[in-house]
Structure formats: C-alpha cells, structure tokens
Design a protein around this nucleic acid. Structure first.
Lengths: 121, 121
DNA sequence: CTTGACCTTCACATCAATGTGAGGGTTTGA
DNA sequence: TCAAACCCTCACATTGATGTGAAGGTCAAG
C-alpha cells in the first residue's frame, strides 16, 4: 500500500511515516515512480511504534528494541551485543518504574474522581 | 530551603526548578534578598512532577492534575469544573492504555532477554 | 488534455523540556 | 576584605516529535 493508505489505517500523519523511515524504524520499498510501497504488516508495526513513542521512548531506542519484539523472532537474534542487552535491561527497568508511577497516579486520579462524584455537591 | 538544596534532594537541575515554577507547578516564596525559599514538602512534589513528566504528561496537564493528587485533599476541591473533570477522565483513560502498552512491551523485552540468556549462544 | 488526488523532496516553524552562559548581586568563612 | 559558593534574571541554543508549505512529478477519470 502507499503512504496515504497506511496513514489512514494507522491514524498517523504522512509526515510522520516519512520521519519514522528517516529514523530507520521502517523501510518501505519504492515503486518505479518513486512512491513508497508499504507491506501490510507495517500497519501493526506503525501502531506499535506509536505506542512506544506515546509511552516516552525515543525513536533511537525504539529502533533498537523493535527487532526484539517481533513475535516469531525465530532463528537468529544475531546482533545481541552485550551493550545492547545492557541497554535493554536498563530500559526494561525504567519501563517498570514508569508503570509504577503511572499506575499510582492513575489510581490517585481515579480515586479523586470517585470522591468528587459521591461528594456530588 | 533554597534552590540548591532542593536541586540536590530531588536530583533536578536548578534550571528546571525555575522552569517548573514558571509553568506554575510550584511557587516558592522569596526571601528578602530575592532568593527562592522552598518548603520541605516540595521535595516530594518535585519528585512527583518528575515522575509525571517522565511518564509523558505535559506540564500544562500536570498543573491541572496535581491538586487532585494531594493526599489530604481535605475540605475543598472547589474548582472541579465539568471540563476539568472531563479532562481528568480522558487523561486517566490515556494513562490506562499507556500502562497496557508499556506493560506489554516491557514483558516482551523481558521475554526476549530471558530467551537470549537461556539460548546462551 | 486537463483537473484533482495522489506522491516526491526540501526546508523552515513550533512546542516542550532542557542546556548553557553571560552579567551581576549575596553570603559565608579564611 | 577577598574568594568561593551561592543566588538572581535574561536570553539564546538544542533536541525530538511534529506541523506546514512550496515546488514539482504521477496517474486516473472526465
């Protein structure tokens, strides 16, 4: 599919799809006329990228992390250098603390909303 | 305490403490000489702010949300306008989906790390 | 063949969160 | 009284994720 369709299917501005490509997160092939050609599988990948971005990961990290997240990562995760593994561990830990913080604050908001509602003024 | 101490106790650059003030997230009083004077309670507040920022909330929202998160919110949450409540609900929901995404990806990384370790190459 | 809806690249703009440094006052201790 | 270590404001720089617009190629349908 071309960029317009992918944009619609993922709710992502064309601009950003080009940006993600520039950042090495996806690399669509090109048609004879120069138009980008996207594999349908990229719909999910783009959505995942957006999720990770939304969650605060920079594209630089997402690029490293993405290959590890493919479900059938199958035969070879060849480039798992020690530094890379360390990065991953560090990031996983950061994600865990983020989850904690996020959860705590979400619950606080929730509690507040509940109180306001029952206090009904 | 003054800005230097708060900075150390929270691991936050002075610059940022001034920035948070500029954004209305905290408002220290001033000593006679113009120096900012911070209440010790602000240590926790600043840490909380950093947590929320780290988690992706913009200062604008944090400013709205913070008052609701104070534990002894006590007698009056007076300015709970309907729009504000709606914002809070929306944000709470976004936080929930963030938590989901974050958890899923963290687990995927975790799983990957485990696999790499056992596969021990 | 022209029009409209696509696509391309390039480049400048914006926004939030930060970094950084200049220029200058204050406080504290040797 | 002088230096070191604070503090102040102001203001410009940067980084990452985006918005936006110009200038132009491609293609399908009328």
């Amino acid at each position: 599919m071309r960029i317009g369709e992918l944009s619609e299917r993922t709710g992502t501005a064309r601009r950003l799809l080009r940006y993600y490509e520039e950042q090495g997160l996806i690399n669509p092939s090109r048609a004879a006329n120069g138009y980008r050609e996207y594999d349908p599988a990229l719909v999910d990948r783009v959505i995942q990228i957006r999720g990770l971005l939304d969650v605060g990961l920079p594209t630089r990290l997402i690029k490293q992390i993405l290959p590890c997240l493919d479900k059938p990562r199958a035969i070879h995760f060849p480039d798992a250098t020690p530094e890379m593994l360390a990065t991953l561990e560090r990031e996983r830990d950061r994600m865990s603390t983020r989850i904690t913080v996020l959860t705590r604050n979400r619950d606080a908001i929730d509690e507040y909303l509940a109180e306001v509602r029952t206090g009904a003024r």
